[in-house]
Simulated scan of single mutants.
Amino acid sequence: MFETLIQQIHEATAALADCPREVSDAQRIDLIGALEDLKCTATAAQATTAVDFDASQR
């Protein structure tokens, strides 16, 4: 499961690096919203992982 998660993160990162620019304004708004959701979820996952790592080191 962990290796699959890491692979999915790498694939998503690669896909975002090639983000399309020739889209409508409505699509841009949708993309901004989706990216904001992704950013918030990634921040929460990073915080949880950091707390778990800190606890494991004590």
Results as ranks from 00 to 15, higher is better:
I29M: 07
L38D: 00
T41M: 11
E11G: 02
L16P: 00
A14F: 08
I32C: 10
E22S: 11
E22K: 02
L31K: 00
A42N: 08
T41G: 04
E11C: 02
D25C: 05
A26D: 13
E36C: 10
S24Y: 03
E11I: 09
R28C: 13
A34Y: 00
E22P: 00
A14R: 11
D30W: 10
P20D: 08
A42P: 03
K39T: 11
P20H: 10
Q27I: 06
E11K: 13
A15P: 02
D30P: 01
D37G: 02
I29T: 10
R28A: 11
P20I: 03
T13N: 10
I29E: 06
A42K: 09
Q27D: 14
A12L: 15
L38R: 03
S24N: 04
I32R: 08
A26L: 06
R21Y: 08
L31E: 00
A26Q: 07
R28E: 07
A15Q: 10
L31Q: 01
E22N: 09
Q27E: 15
A14P: 00
C40N: 14
I32G: 00
L38S: 05
A14T: 04
A42T: 11
C40K: 14
A14L: 12
C40V: 11
R21Q: 14
P20G: 06
Q27R: 10
L16D: 06
T41A: 12
D25Q: 01
I29Q: 15
E11F: 08
I29R: 13
E22M: 03
R28P: 01
R21A: 08
I32Q: 10
A17T: 03
T41N: 10
A12M: 15
Q27C: 09
C40F: 03
E36G: 02
D30C: 08
C19M: 15
T41P: 01
K39P: 01
L16A: 05
K39F: 03
Q27A: 09
E22Y: 03
K39V: 07
S24F: 07
L38M: 08
V23Y: 02
I29K: 12
A14H: 05
P20F: 02
A34K: 01
R21C: 00
Q27N: 04
H10F: 09
D37M: 10
D25N: 08
H10N: 13
L31C: 09
A26P: 03
A15H: 09
E36R: 13
A15C: 05
H10W: 00
S24I: 05
L16T: 03
L35E: 06
I32H: 04
E36M: 10
A34S: 11
H10G: 04
C19I: 14
C40I: 13
Q27P: 02
T41L: 15
L16I: 12
D30E: 12
I32S: 07
L16Q: 04
D37C: 12
A17K: 13
P20Y: 04
D18I: 01
A17P: 00
K39E: 05
T41S: 15
I32K: 14
A26C: 04
R28Y: 04
Q27K: 14
Q27H: 12
R28G: 05
E22Q: 05
D37V: 07
D25P: 01
G33A: 03
T13F: 07
P20A: 07
C40Q: 12
V23D: 05
L38K: 05
P20R: 04
G33Y: 06
V23M: 15
H10L: 13
H10E: 14
A42R: 09
D18T: 08
L16M: 13
D30F: 05
G33C: 12
A42V: 13
V23H: 04
L31F: 06
